[in-house]
Design a protein around this nucleic acid. Sequence first.
RNA 1: CGGGGCGUAGCGCAGUUUGGCAGCGCGCCUGCUUUGGGAGCAGGAGGUCCCGGGUUCAAAUCCCGGCGCCCCGACCA
Length: 493
Amino acid sequence: MGYMQDKVFVREITPRAQDYSQWYVDVATRAELMDYSPVKGCMVFRPYGFGIWERIQGALDPKFKATGHANAYFPLFIPESFLKKEAEHFAGFVPEVAWVTHGGGEELAERLAIRPTSEAMICHMYARWIQSWRDLPMLLNQWCNVVRWEKATRPFLRTTEFLWQEGHTCHATEEEAERETLQMLDIYRETFEEDLALAVVPGRKTEAEKFAGALRTYTVEALMSDGKALQAGTSHNLGQFFARVFDILYLDRDGQQKHVWQTSWGVSTRLIGALIMVHGDDRGLVLPPRVAPLQAVIVPIAPQRQRQEVLEAVRQLHADLAGRFRVKLDDREEHSPGWKFNEWEMRGVPVRIELGPRDLAAGRVVMVRRDDGAREEVALAEVARRLAELLDEVQAALRRKAWTFTEQHTRIVGDSSSFRSTLEECRGLLVAGWCGDAGCEARVKADTGATIRCLPLAGAKTPVAEACREAAGAPCVHCGRRGGQVVVFGRAY
RNA sequence: CGGGGCGUAGCGCAGUUUGGCAGCGCGCCUGCUUUGGGAGCAGGAGGUCCCGGGUUCAAAUCCCGGCGCCCCGACCA
């Protein structure tokens, strides 16, 4: 029996074309990535969903370490007075802060903010720890939760509490801070491409879109299958803004007290949302093998008469594979093989291995890819070798597919009159000239809902690179002035 | 914060218009038969009809107030 793309076996997932938002929620819940909790906007990461986050951590953390960063952990609670120090910067996110007013049954003398981010706490500590140029660079990262009281929440994409990593570094010079900022951006890009199989556009944010208080904000943008862009990770050159506010000073070789130059960079569990939306299809989740909690599932077809032989064979196979792959043997008796096929496809397991009486007799298994449904027979002795290849092939295919999709949903737009219609038609990214004026940027946003996702980095190999080359020298899409630059517009999450 | 939709068994829903025994499908439990794309039969368990008032002989249903969830928009380091 074939894969039968068109046949609907399971009706638990709303088709994307019918209701994309509902499809997204269906996949997130039915695949058992998450569940809603009794507290608004706070979701539970179920083991399967948390497993993806663990894989993402597993891909990023060694790269942080390899570039000299160490992990640390700072407190969840931040005294109100700390946040007031950065009043200007803080004012912007006051509405999103959750406060602790009581402890041990008594009202606190000073309210404590639950961190929306850790700049204030970490900078306070940096001021104590950094005295001399010899203390630099200071390269720390922390994996933690943060809370932002959002009005509208969506699983993974925007939740009240979420998990992330925040890197915070201090440097002696602006140049070194800039190098660090770009280095971490590139680590994100590389990991998104190689492990998450995403097609991404690294670039710089405009003044309007950058992190308040940062000198420059860099981003890695990815296009979702509904045509909206997602900011998948950011890296900020903070300049000396926080160093001045928190008095982070060092005595330089020349005997002068100087403020440090800082960076911060982060990715969050929002990346799981990106995985769902970039790779998923109408049958459910599709996970890239490198971040999939389960890379393969073994489904025995064990009719009564050959039950023992089949079970013995799949147990042996599972034992052979378990050391090298994240593999599960689904030998539950309460479900039929067909039920399991659908279930594991819905949950995005990259490869399924079937073994039944016919296979046993022939000394082989049937292997089926989740991404394209291709099936093949493989000799038992070859399963491990072939599985390794298949996982690589699936990984590469997903990455290629995401790349092609982004390429095909990118258009060059020359003037504002055709902006909206082109955006509707291509359902993706628009490459256009921009004079650099914030007014033009705001006007386009007000007229079309599209924002400048980024000013793409020159020379980067991206799915929009060709369009950017073609559009080079184009006049501003809003005012027609020349001499600006090429930017990427899109509607964003 | 604005617009829309919805709250009835674990999940999906019907019942609400016109008040009158709390229902259906899936799932769950037990047994038997089954197993190559969500198996069949038989038996069974499971309810604060979102919450609080009111009207009534009688409220899931009508009236008043509140809460929550989902989607869209605005906002968002």
